[in-house]
Amino acid sequence: MSEERPKRIAIIALNGTMDQAYPPLILASAAVAMDMEAAIFFSFYGLEIIKKNSNLKVSPIANPAAPAPVGNFRVPNIVGMLPGMTDIATLMMKSWMDKAGVASYQKLLEMCIKSGVRMIGCQMTMDVMGVKKEDFVDGIEIGGAATFLDYAADSDISLAF
């Protein structure tokens, strides 16, 4: 489309579970593929998404829609508290995703960085949680509220996950 400037999406990623890592990474990478500009501001547990060798999991706790370990049997939510249930839920989700041909979130992260999505780690929450810039994969910039707002002020779409 012939616009003055490209459309722009500004995303905040606050969560560090595997399922919640997908929406920001999918939307940002797809936006760039649609000739838009995209940035993701990673804060709080969202910082886990951009760590080197991250191993995000699916939480079965407080998640009644978590993957069922046996067929379609919906286990009582309290079972999610048992040791090992987080790993089981994660394995179930990964096997579903493999079957459907979904890219890993690590691959999408790489694609976001490679395609020029602005990836911003939140300095304040890094300090709170003892996270260093070296803990992140390459291609992450560090910033704060003003950095995000400066970008988001000129954006057409803003989302928080």
Partner: peptide
């Protein structure tokens, strides 16, 4: 073939 959202869009862009 075999890929799903958002990969086909990323691939066509490339």
């Amino acid at each position: 073939k075999g890929k799903c959202c958002p990969e086909p869009i990323l691939d066509i862009k490339t």
